[in-house]
Design a protein around this nucleic acid. Sequence first.
DNA 1: GTTCTAGAAC
DNA 2: GTTCTAGAAC
Length: 177
Amino acid sequence: MWSLGLLKTMKDPKYMVFSDTKIVMIKDMYPKAEHHFLVLPHEEITNLKKVTEKDIPLLEYMFEKAKQYTSKHFPDVEFKFGYHAQPSMHRLHLHVISKDMNSEFLKNKKHWNSFTTEFFMNSSDILRQLKTSGKIKFPSAAECELMMKRELKCHRCNLVFPTIPKLKQHIRSHRAD
DNA sequence: GTTCTAGAAC
DNA sequence: GTTCTAGAAC
């Protein structure tokens, strides 16, 4: 089953960039930016929906290790850290992705909107919610569907583009900024 | 999650 | 005619 693919990838030395007793950090097999990693716990947490107050220390640890890794290896690159509201793959995974969004693997509207709308839930927001209310507020399935269908808007300058190829061409032009 | 491809959109 | 999207995958 394809949705179990991450469980195999997280054991593959070819993709692993860091691991310890609690977590594994891997390269995303289909990076949606110039740098894109995933941080996964060894603990069998299926997804963000299963996360509760008791997992706060683990989520903080994942976030801290991700920040340590990127600041050490890519001190000049800006990253964002967060979770998809409706992940496709099993095992909780924190996306660690550079803000360029420039990648040959970014091919469709869902790819784009899953990282540039509220579908992407920042790690710091998730932790704040867990600490203040003990739970996480998710967008509904209908809201997620609408977010995925949203217009293609540049995350840097808010310009709107009619197609993915036009958007991608524009995104590349921001690299020289 | 990706690949493939029919047919919509241009 | 070509580009591009969107839905099936047994």
